[in-house]
């Protein structure tokens, strides 16, 4: 692990920290335009964070240390994930020791801690949110794992840098299993990031909340960390999507020179702009599902991912 590699690693983490709220702001802008409203400024999430960091924490009387530690855990796991996923370049020392399966583990850690924190205060909505989040989680996690399995079958690795580099060398987008995986992945992305049709990030009605219900008791800096973590989570998921399905522009370890990083940064920004537009279009065109229907949606994602695997194996055998 050279200092240069460590520096690149750090650069990517800081870029993720900076870009994640902007990406959330971009999505909010796109949504406002599509819905014929005047859009908030792109930096609105930053202003929210600054406001929240300035406020005084109001903590419930029976809040335990677990409750206070959880925002740091959430933020930490998402930063860790941002360090693993090659969004800008593949030469990441961290990504060599923590592979895609461990990444799923890190996401699960965040989910478990958030659910436990939501149950800590003992209000009805918190526990309700925790229960629903865990339900979505146990359906979405296998689907995501199957997407990674398919990538492994195609490229023979679960480490992200290898996945991306092999992908760019053999662009086998023609393999039909990738299409199945991609659809399954988008469905998982929507569910895991509390987007419509599974959850409504802008709702004001507690009964329909999932993610927001778990954050109800958080305030000030704790809330700021949790919100930053959830915008990072969306950013991370989108970057996983890029790494698996649109890897062009990500600087590989063999590329050297000063021009590499600006080019890959430009590619990343373009892809993010595009992804934001696509996400908002899906969200605007679909209605929120009832909670009872969420399992069907996620079971479909799971089956699509498994189908992708089978298609790959069938074609491989034939």
């Amino acid at each position: 692990m050279t200092p240069a590699a460590l520096l690149r690693q750090l650069a990517q983490i800081i870029l993720a920290l900076a870009l994640a709220p902007l990406f959330a702001g971009w999505i909010a802008q796109c949504r406002a335009w599509l819905q014929n409203r005047s859009a908030p400024p792109l930096t609105q999430p930053y202003r929210m964070l600054r406001k929240l960091f300035a406020k005084e924490v109001v903590l419930a009387d029976n809040a335990s240390p677990l409750f206070r530690a959880t925002p740091y855990v959430l933020f930490g796991t998402m930063v860790l994930a941002a360090a693993i996923i090659p969004s800008l370049l593949t030469d990441l020392p961290f990504a060599r020791v923590v592979d895609a399966i461990a990444l799923i583990g890190a996401f699960a850690t965040a989910r478990v801690f958030l659910s436990l924190a939501a149950m800590d205060i003992g209000t009805a909505f918190g526990t309700l949110g925790a229960r629903r989040e865990m339900m979505i989680g146990f359906l979405a996690e296998p689907a995501l794992l199957m997407v990674f399995f398919n990538a492994f079958l195609l490229f023979g690795s679960t480490a992200f840098p290898n996945l991306v580099e092999r992908y760019t060398r053999h662009p086998s987008l023609l393999d039909p299993s990738v299409l199945f995986s991609a659809i399954a992945f988008v469905m998982v992305l929507l569910a895991e990031n509390a987007r419509i049709p599974i959850d409504n990030p802008a709702t004001h009605l507690e009964l329909t909340m999932v993610h927001e219900a778990m954050l109800l008791e958080y305030s000030a800096r704790h809330l700021a960390l949790a919100e930053w973590a959830s915008s990072l989570k969306l950013y991370n998921y989108v970057c996983i999507g890029f790494a698996l399905f649109l890897p062009w522009g990500i600087a590989s370890s063999t590329q050297h020179g000063l021009w590499v990083l600006p080019v890959s940064l430009a590619a990343l920004v373009c892809k993010l702009l595009l992804a934001g537009g696509v996400l908002v279009t899906i969200e605007t065109l679909s209605a929120k599902l009832r909670v009872f229907r969420a399992p069907e949606f996620l079971a479909m994602a799971f089956l699509l991912a498994v189908l992708g695997l089978l298609v790959h194996l069938l074609l491989g055998a034939a």
Partner: peptide
């Protein structure tokens, strides 16, 4: 994934709230 659900239930209901 279900095991994680079960253990959140166990810990959350016994020790939290």
């Amino acid at each position: 994934a279900l095991a994680a659900y079960v253990m959140v239930k166990f810990y959350g209901i016994v020790f939290l709230g």
